[in-house]
């Protein structure tokens, strides 16, 4: 039911990497993409992302996300392209009136921005789809020394989203069964019709979080020092991956300094 990014079990190389390595990967993709001005370099980063997704067997789940990003990129480019005046004009939006000039540099820049966005934004869903949330949290608390309560807060918040959507559907169905009609075009009415949905949702969520807090407390949450049963040590593959990423980042920095 949930339309949210969820962990998809698998056993690919990327699945088996340490969460920290994967988090480092998202950062290095970001650094590389913003260091280089060459669209082809960014495109190759994006292709590598797709290859990772393909080996992790999550390409099908990535498809709606990529489609959404593409739509967003198109809108962004359309907003941008007419305002770049540098370079030679290659075409006009309205050729008969010579209105809306589009330059070659404008196109290049928009392609670059779009590719940057696709490459950097696609890493996060890949990370979340190949890593169980609990592993990310363990790694963050154990390796990055993040306080456990904060990382737990993050997990619970993310875990709540799918159940929130389910709950919303339940509320929606309950009100529809009482003749409640949710489709209206009028924005004022739209605001009003939210009330029968929002209040039950709020109340059940508060009930749920109270229950969760109590159930955690009765199992000893917050009683003192914690232990951890998951092993989150780095393997050889992790070190190799980190070396590869580091060399790419360094190469990116070097290339940026030269040009």
């Amino acid at each position: 039911m949930s339309a949210f990014v969820e962990y998809i079990p698998g056993n690919s190389i990327f699945h088996r990497l340490n969460p920290i390595t994967k988090i480092l990967w998202t950062f290095s993709v970001m650094i590389v993409c913003f260091l280089t001005e060459n669209p082809l370099a960014v495109l190759s980063v994006f292709i590598v992302n797709l290859v990772i997704a393909a080996t992790g067997n999550i390409i099908r789940q990535m498809y709606p996300i990529l489609r959404g990003l593409l739509v967003f990129c198109t809108i962004l480019s359309l907003c941008q392209v007419f305002f770049i005046k540098e370079g030679t004009v290659v075409l006009y939006a309205l050729p008969w009136f010579r209105l809306g000039p589009v330059t070659d540099r404008g196109i290049r820049l928009c392609v670059l921005i779009s590719l940057r966005m696709l490459s950097t934004a696609s890493t996060v869903p890949i990370l979340l789809m190949t890593t169980p949330m609990s592993d990310i949290i363990t790694a963050m608390t154990e390796k990055l020394r993040l306080p456990y309560k904060y990382s737990l807060m993050l997990t619970i918040a993310l875990k709540f989203i799918p159940s929130f959507i389910d709950e919303m559907n339940q509320v929606m169905q309950a009100q529809m069964s009482r003749g409640y009609n949710s489709d209206t075009k009028n924005p004022f009415r739209k605001f009003l019709i939210i009330i029968p949905l929002a209040i039950p949702l709020l109340i059940t969520s508060i009930q749920k979080s109270r229950l969760l807090a109590i159930s955690m407390e009765v199992r000893g949450f917050g009683s003192g020092k914690r232990s951890c049963y998951k092993d989150c040590s780095m393997g050889n593959a992790d070190y190799i991956a980190i070396i590869i990423m580091a060399s790419f980042v360094l190469a990116g920095i070097a290339a940026a300094l030269i040009t």
């Binding site: 169905q173 069964s177 009930q207």
Partner: peptide, 14 residues
């Protein structure tokens, strides 16, 4: 024509 009572009353009370 059809009245429907759900399991959890809290899904509808507002």
């Amino acid at each position: 024509y059809v009245g429907f009572l759900f399991q959890n009353p809290d899904h509808q009370i507002f």
